[in-house]
């Protein structure tokens, strides 16, 4: 981006007067500031959603398929979990990994691992809840048909997963959306740390946006916001495409 182009953008040129150099000239793409933030965001949310899915899918299948005492309670707990306030989750995780907490010896304060833990806690209820709804919506007659053709319980479960694939993809997306756009817990447990060289350690797109906005660097904040939006859209499109691919084979 040239300086001339930047000068056209009226009021923001105020930045020039406070000695930060011309607008966009210090836009930190070169220093890998933004790319490192994207990498941290994708790494933390990607792993968290993957782990959440590993936990959620079996729970959804078991709760969806079997009748047991307390099933309604379990469902209620899962649905309540969808509304967990992220700052409270962050607070609890921070305490858990802090020196006074039970996981203090692992030295996880202000690390990506701690951020993953808090995002797993936040993403698991929506993924489980939406998966459960998707699995439950598969007609019992489809399960019967698979069983009648000689399927074992595992075969029947796989048929249900296949039939519910769009719903399950939506569940994973909802979890990913919650994880990557969440700011409260990652700020508390991750600390929004970037090194002196401008490389993010625990700074994510959301915490960076908050930081940039607070310091009045709206341009950078806007670009980061756009990146976040594009990321979510791309992941949505990819997952939906994957679900499509299984339709006819």
């Amino acid at each position: 981006m040239s300086v001339e182009a930047a000068v056209d953008i009226g009021p923001l040129i105020v930045d020039l007067s406070v000695g930060r150099g011309p607008l966009f000239a210090d836009f930190p793409f070169e220093s890998q500031y933004v790319t490192s933030i994207i990498r941290v965001s994708l790494y933390v949310s990607g792993i968290a959603v993957f782990l959440s899915t590993l936990v959620s899918l079996p729970i959804a299948l078991v709760v969806g398929f079997t009748d047991f005492i307390g099933k309604r309670l379990v469902t209620a707990v899962i649905n309540t979990g969808m509304g967990f306030p992220s700052v409270v989750v962050g607070l609890v995780v921070l305490f858990t990994v802090s020196n006074q907490g039970p996981l203090g010896h692992l030295n996880l304060v202000f690390t990506k691992e701690a951020m993953i833990i808090s995002q797993v806690i936040l993403a698991t209820p929506p993924i489980t809840g939406i998966s459960l709804a998707a699995v439950s919506s598969v007609d019992e007659s489809v399960r019967d048909a698979a069983y009648a053709m000689g399927g074992t319980r595992l075969d029947v479960a796989l048929v249900v997963v296949k039939e519910a694939r769009y719903g399950l993809a939506t569940a994973v997306l909802a979890g990913f959306g919650r994880a990557i756009s969440e700011v409260g817990s990652v700020l508390i447990v991750g600390g929004n740390i970037a090194g002196a060289n401008g490389i993010s350690k625990t700074r994510t797109l959301t915490t960076a946006i908050r930081q940039e906005a607070r310091q009045g660097r709206y341009d950078t904040a806007m670009v980061l916001g756009a990146v976040l939006l594009v990321l979510v859209l791309v992941v949505n499109a990819l997952v939906m495409r994957l679900g499509d691919g299984g339709t006819v084979r």
């Binding site: 048909a145 009648a148 053709m149 399927g151 075969d155 296949k162 339709t247």
Partner: peptide, 23 residues
């Protein structure tokens, strides 16, 4: 066993018919 309603899987006809062989 064949039921009153067909309950086919969301897949091609041949994949539906091949299911019993597959399992």
């Amino acid at each position: 066993m064949v039921f009153q309603d067909a309950s086919l899987f969301d897949a091609s006809v041949s994949r539906n018919v091949a299911y019993g062989l597959r399992v």
